[in-house]
C-alpha cells in the first residue's frame, strides 16, 4: 500500500552491488541488473523479490551446486552458474531473472548469462539497500523474530476480538 512505484529501490540495489564507482566509469562499463523488480498491476505497485524460502525450489532445481542457504539467506554463487535456467523456472514468484554479464566470459569466449536474484545485500554492513533508499519506507526486512512477533500480535488481536464478541453476546443475553 505504501509503494508508489518510483523504483528508487531498483537503482539502490544495483549501486549497492556494483559499487559507487559506476558513477565515474564509462556508462556501458558496468552491469545494471536490479535484483528486484517493481511490478504495476491494476490493483498494486510493489517490488517482487526473493522470499528466501526455507526449502527453496531454486536450490532443489540447481544441478551446478551454485545455490546455498548461507545463515538464512538463499545465495546464488554466479561463478558456478551454467545458465541452465532451472532455478528461474522453478521459482514460483519469478524472483530469479536470467541476466547477461557485460565483462565476464565463458571458457569459449561467449558472454556469460547467469541467474540473478536478491541476496539481502549479504555483504553490506547496513543491510538491504532497497530498504534504506525507499522514500515511503514501504520495504521491511522480516527477520525470524519479526515473524514470531507478528504472529503473536495477530493472535492477541484475534483473542481480543473474541473477547469483545463474547462480552457483547453476554450483554445481549443480559439485556
Amino acid at each position: 500500500m505504501l509503494c508508489i512505484g518510483c523504483r528508487t529501490c531498483m537503482i539502490g540495489c544495483v549501486v549497492a552491488h556494483e559499487g559507487k564507482h559506476i558513477f565515474e566509469v564509462d556508462p556501458d562499463g558496468y552491469d545494471f541488473h536490479p535484483k528486484l523488480k517493481v511490478i504495476k498491476t491494476f490493483n498494486v505497485s510493489v517490488p517482487v523479490q526473493c522470499k528466501h524460502c526455507e526449502a527453496p525450489a531454486c536450490m532443489a532445481a540447481c544441478k551446478s551446486d551454485a545455490i546455498h542457504i548461507v545463515n538464512g539467506t538463499v545465495i546464488i554463487r554466479t561463478e558456478k552458474c551454467i545458465g541452465c535456467k532451472s532455478c528461474a523456472e522453478a521459482c514460483p514468484f519469478g524472483a530469479i531473472q536470467m541476466v547477461t554479464l557485460g565483462s565476464a566470459r565463458n571458457a569459449d569466449g561467449a558472454p556469460r548469462s547467469v541467474a540473478n536474484k536478491c541476496d539481502l545485500c549479504q555483504d553490506q554492513p547496513k543491510g538491504p539497500a532497497c530498504l534504506r533508499v525507499c522514500p515511503t519506507a514501504a520495504l521491511r526486512l522480516v527477520k525470524e523474530e519479526d515473524l514470531g512477533q507478528t504472529l503473536k500480535n495477530k493472535r492477541l488481536a484475534t483473542l481480543g476480538l473474541a473477547l469483545g464478541a463474547e462480552a457483547q453476546k453476554q450483554a445481549a443475553i443480559g439485556a
Binding site: K40, T41, N43, A88, G94
Partner: peptide, 13 residues
C-alpha cells in the same frame, strides 16, 4: 517470469 511476477505482486497486495 512476467506472468509469475504479476501473481506475486497481487499476492503482496
Amino acid at each position: 517470469r512476467k506472468k509469475k511476477n504479476i501473481a506475486a505482486a497481487e499476492a503482496l497486495a
